[in-house]
Amino acid sequence: MEWNEILTAIFLALGVLISLTGSLGLLRMPDFYTRLHTAGKSDSLAQTFILGGLIFVTDNWQVAVRLLMIILLLFFTAPTATHAITKAARLDGLEPWRRG
């Protein structure tokens, strides 16, 4: 394998691991709000690793720039979406779970 393929493999593996953690958290967390913590946000780092890792194997600088733009776009939209969902739950009167 070329060095860039190895780099991509490492980035993809990290991204997959973080995604898996997000999914596991979704199953294990006790309520809606805590699930959003793992689901909505492990994604922000996972997508950066997966899309960022792909940049190393593009044969075209335009594709690399487009990937960077997608990463940036998700960085702005992901927290906004999480916030919108959380606020909707709050307005609906959903009480957060508490230990004990």
Partner: peptide
């Protein structure tokens, strides 16, 4: 705050 895991800004 929302981007860093562990905290979400609700309002």
């Amino acid at each position: 705050i929302t981007l860093t895991p562990g905290t979400v800004t609700i309002e």
